[in-house]
Design a protein around this nucleic acid. Structure first.
Length: 424
RNA sequence: AGAGGGUUGGCGGAGUGGUCGAACGCGGCGGUCUUGAAAACCGUUGUACCGAAAGGUACCGGGGGUUCGAAUCCCUCACCCUCUGCCA
């Protein structure tokens, strides 16, 4: 979340960043917050002085008792009654104010970075890079949901029986293709210097608050009955939270982690007729890269992460484009996000397969993730993450783009991982 | 799952109601000494909030309570260890 100190120091920029993100009445929201903080400080100061007074008397009572002056001690006790009542009520007030303050802070999104373009909807996103030729498909080319039936590699009906819509069952070469992609992505990340992490796929609410899924996206996560736990919507949550409440040493930075996990999303409200096949699922696999950087390095790191993901797509021979999200399309916690989209030829559609974001200090502030500067000051770090990559849409694009009368060609880089060169 | 024992500063470890934010040791930092280093000695060494500063307040696993006063007593939750049981 945003820091009051930063808001005070940089009010104009933050209001502009929130407005860009389409926060209504950004100025009022911020002014309100500052007023509330002012109240907090007043109450705190008053409380402190009352506590100080009563502590002083307590110490005197201690001294009197020691000296054997019981009467004096009893007398001094009389004085504390009023102070006690006063401090109780101030404490109550302070708690109320702080609760209000934190609730508001939790519900204010990150401010958009200066580089983020204005705009309200995905139509306002800016395509910054296109790569690869759109493939020419043969006559009678099929969308992936028909291909998977034809070659019997993914079964949605079976998934319906076991769980419900959006939980596909992968079979035979379909399952192997999944496993191959996961291994390929992990292997590439390792070569690029990322440390592999296998985190829990169930998180507690502290973790959810740490990275910002809570309270904002409570309805998008699957909760575990009779507990304070949730299924992860992305590996970002458990991996970034590894560093919650940590003051990093210089030699531990930068952090570069990669993790494969299944991801679980309710996708409430985003289901529709246009969402077919693998385009949107409740459970899917994803390899995620996470970086933790010093503030001055984070934008360089963001670029490097983009280049890394572009490399993966190139190796998979998929035509893609890189999109800079406009303010209105940015995620709650993100300061800036690039989406990578692959072209899915039979659907004639761009599919988002990666989202690469810099959260600046927004998550770090919630996480209390800090480092010591060379001057010995404790400062917040920047967190970043990106999908590298999300599997289902990659599978969709591979199936659609590589189809021919004889079957589906497996991209060359994947063949060592699949052990076969075609699905037929 | 049952019984018992624990959780104190970067680490180890005292402290069982009154100047305790916390002895002592280790580690870290600064200095003296040294050609340099080690050793020895001296000093310093948690985090957050308020304050221009002086200083104040909070924090001894989390939350609540008793008390003029809680690291210390009570309740509750979490986690760890040991033994018993069960299990991939």
């Amino acid at each position: 979340m945003l820091r009051i100190a930063d808001i005070k120091k940089d009010k104009k920029r933050i209001i502009a960043g929130l407005a860009k993100k389409r926060v209504e009445n950004a100025r009022e929201v911020i002014e309100d917050l500052l007023m509330l903080d002012e109240q907090r400080r007043h109450t705190q100061a008053e409380l402190d002085s009352v506590l100080n007074e009563s502590k002083t008397i307590s110490k005197q009572i201690g001294a009197l008792m020691k000296a054997g002056d019981r009467e004096g001690a009893e007398q001094a006790k009389q004085q504390t009654g009023a102070l006690k009542a006063r401090s109780k009520s101030l404490q109550e007030q302070l708690r109320n104010i702080e609760e209000k303050l934190i609730r508001r802070l939790y519900n204010i999104p990150n401010a958009a970075n200066e580089k983020v373009p204005e705009g309200a909807t995905p139509e306002d996103n800016v395509v910054v890079l296109e790569h690869g030729a759109v493939p020419q498909l043969p006559e009678g080319a099929l969308p992936h949901w028909e291909l998977i039936e034809k070659y019997d590699i993914i079964d949605f009906e079976l998934g319906n029986k076991i769980t419900g819509a959006g939980f596909p069952v992968y079979k035979g070469k379909g399952a192997k293709l999944q496993r191959a992609l996961i291994n390929f992505f992990l292997h590439e990340a390792e070569k690029a210097g990322y440390l592999e992490i296998q985190p829990p796929v169930i998180i507690n609410s502290d973790s959810g608050y740490g990275t910002g899924q809570l309270p904002d996206k409570e309805g998008q996560m699957y909760g575990i009955v009779d507990s304070d736990l949730y299924l992860i919507p992305t590996a970002e949550v458990p991996i970034t939270n590894l560093y919650r409440n940590v003051i990093m040493k210089d030699e531990q930075l930068p952090v570069m982690n990669v993790g494969y996990t299944p991801c679980f999303r309710r996708e409430a409200g985003s289901w529709g007729a246009h969402v077919r096949g693998l385009n949107r699922l409740h459970q899917f696999d994803k390899v995620e890269i996470v970086q933790i950087r010093k503030p001055e390095e984070s934008y360089q790191a963001l670029e490097e992460m983009c280049v890394y993901v572009e490399g993966l797509l190139e190796k998979l021979e998929l035509p893609f484009r890189k999109v800079l999200l406009c303010g209105g399309d940015l995620g709650f916690t993100s300061a800036i996000t690039y989406d990578m989209e692959v072209f899915s030829a039979a659907q004639n559609k761009w599919l988002e397969v990666s989202s690469i974001s810099n959260f600046e200090t927004y998550q770090a502030n919630r996480l209390k993730l800090r480092y010591k500067t060379t001057e010995g000051k404790t400062e917040l770090l920047h967190t970043l993450n990106g999908s590298a990559l999300a599997l289902p849409r990659i599978v969709a694009a591979i199936l659609e783009n590589n189809q021919s009368g004889e079957g589906i060609r497996v991209p060359e880089v994947l063949q060592p991982y699949t052990g076969f060169d075609a699905i037929d």
